[in-house]
Design a protein around this nucleic acid. Structure first.
Lengths: 345, 345
DNA sequence: ATGAAAGCGCTAACAC
DNA sequence: GTGTTAGCGCTTTCAT
């Protein structure tokens, strides 16, 4: 059997004082409550002696606060989200929170189960990059005044806390760069479901750039790749798209996973970047600095996203306790275009 | 204020039954306790109606089991560990556990704090890739009969649950491949602290392969790179090492981070792999399939490591409750050499 | 300067 | 078939 840990009661009994007193002391409120210095010393001595550790579970139950927050993303093993996780962990820790991390695999029912699981576990708040299509689940959270903040992806029509980047402008600028380099037949590889807002916004940015440049948008140049079969779908589409008659001279990969599959295919087929076709991606990952050639991409300010998300969440959590107004915050951060060899003639 | 959630008491009162009964029913033990079907129906109806969710915090406190496990690694944003995390999450979930993930940054005091934090939070068990040098902290866990399993890294002299790979043989085989390809002046880039067991074992495997092949080991060919400054240190060492007079024809990178920095340097300096110098790495990551040339590496069976770790941990947790003997398990899995272009003449 | 008692929400032993 | 009671470990109000 696991050794029974000593509780505040054991300390109190072995010292012949009340557990109230012990509680006061170990929470550093001895002076506040006027416990004599000498008694405080006695308590601390015993605490060290038996290596007493308060049971945070019990404390949480009593206080109605778990000092834990939940993070939900589509896949923690994706480079982008693991960087997000690391930064959220860092900022959360600074504020005394621990992190429960969950991956949804873009599965909506699963995401809903995870949200409920986190609530059942009494996490103090949730940070989520949601795959959901509508706001139903979040409306419930809002009704319950449950603290949460969306990151990366937002839900159309839902007024709530959100931290993300300007995907339209980020994409627009990147495409303008591409066009300025002389590329005029640019295909885009999006990912389904396209109702995911950043994906949709990137498509919008793409179209906008084409139009403003007098290139006409051709819907045959927009390929939708299913999330669960990226690798094969990308290759199939590329094979068809890159036939000489199509004269495609650049590809915009809407996220890092798509770009990776493109690179894989280009390598296999000995297709030269950017001579045969240029490549531009969203989401800057380490890999893009290591391939030959290096890959131009739109970088998101991950640190800043995480910092803001935690700040907002913490405010929300504390505001709840102080009964003041539940005010939503939307933060849209700028992206940063990293121009590398894959788009330079 | 956050809405007060309704508790088992509210259900009981509004139905005019005892909370015991409600508890029995919602735990699906109504039949077992002989609660009439009709009462059970009544309870379930009410539960749906008010959307009652049991407070897992309270349940955990009562049951002395949190259904949470902790995962400690050096850095969750490292590709290798994020893959580990994803797989641990998957297998843990299948057994009803959630995951609290922590990164240590190879900081030992920090790691100790994290272990204690997890204990305080009453996690049921810990899975850890430890940076610790000695067994002191783990001796304490063992004394407390606290379930834990080491993965990836073990602590010399500590008899405990462990799941990892045969680093010596994995490296030995990889080096033999390299030597068979004709490379005879092979430098190794290790990482400090070298007391980390897999690193040390890989060095051993390297030396063994050299000796068995009649190549003499030269300690100038072993470079130690500090964990917190990999990029610069690798470049500095490479610059010196690759001078023509040294005649180095192959580099063994002891983990993926080192390999990444090597590739970066090679690209910058237009050094050709494998013509100018061959490159072999430990830890297969996606990136190695995408670079030009592709990189040969020693692959660890991540899925299997995670599955075994969870199985052992779960056994340990349950064994504790059943008072039977605390038996340790050591699992050493084979690696898989992925031969790619970076080592083929 | 300290303690008694109540209660957070839940489960389980034991009644009836 | 169902209810009473005790208690998991903690904090807090109210006494003294």
């Amino acid at each position: 059997m696991k050794e029974k840990k000593n509780s505040i009661n054991d300390i109190a009994n072995s010292l012949g004082v009340s557990k109230t007193l012990v509680s006061m002391v170990i929470n550093n409120r001895g002076d506040e409550y006027g416990i004599s210095k000498i008694t405080q010393k006695k308590v601390w001595k015993k605490v060290k002696e038996v290596d007493y550790k308060p049971n945070l579970m019990a404390r949480s139950l009593r206080l109605g606060k778990s000092n834990t927050i939940g993070l939900i993303v589509s896949d923690i093993s994706n480079s982008f989200y693991s960087k997000i996780a690391r930064n959220i962990e860092r900022y959360a820790e600074a504020k005394g929170y621990n992190l429960i991390i969950c991956s949804t695999d873009e599965d909506i029912p699963r995401e809903i189960r995870l949200i409920n699981m986190l609530k059942d576990r009494q996490v103090d708040g949730i940070i989520i990059s949601s795959s959901q299509k509508d706001s139903a689940e979040f409306d419930l959270l809002i009704k319950d005044k449950y603290p949460f903040v969306l990151i990366d992806r937002y839900i159309p029509g839902l007024e709530t806390n959100y931290v993300g980047v300007d995907n339209i402008k980020g994409t627009y600028d990147a495409l303008m760069h591409l066009i300025k380099q002389g590329y005029d037949k640019i295909a885009v590889f999006a990912i389904t479901p396209t109702y995911i807002t950043p994906i949709n916004d990137r498509i919008v940015g793409y179209m906008k750039a084409l139009m403003d440049s007098g290139l006409n948008y051709n819907k045959n140049l927009l390929k939708e790749i299913p999330y669960n079969n990226i690798k094969h779908a990308v290759k199939d589409e590329l094979k068809k798209l890159l036939l000489p008659k199509n004269k495609i001279n650049a590809i915009f990969a809407i996220n890092n996973s798509i770009a990776i599959s493109c690179i894989e295919y280009f390598n296999e087929m000995h297709i030269k970047i950017p001579e045969d076709v240029a490549l531009l991606s969203f989401d800057d990952i380490d890999l893009f600095k290591l391939t030959i050639p290096t890959i131009t991409s739109v970088q998101q300010p991950i640190e800043e996203i995480c910092k803001q998300a935690i700040d907002i969440l913490e405010n929300q959590i504390n505001k709840n306790n102080s009964n003041s107004k539940y005010k939503m915050q939307k933060i849209i951060l700028p992206t940063n275009l990293k121009i590398r060899r894959s788009t330079i003639v």
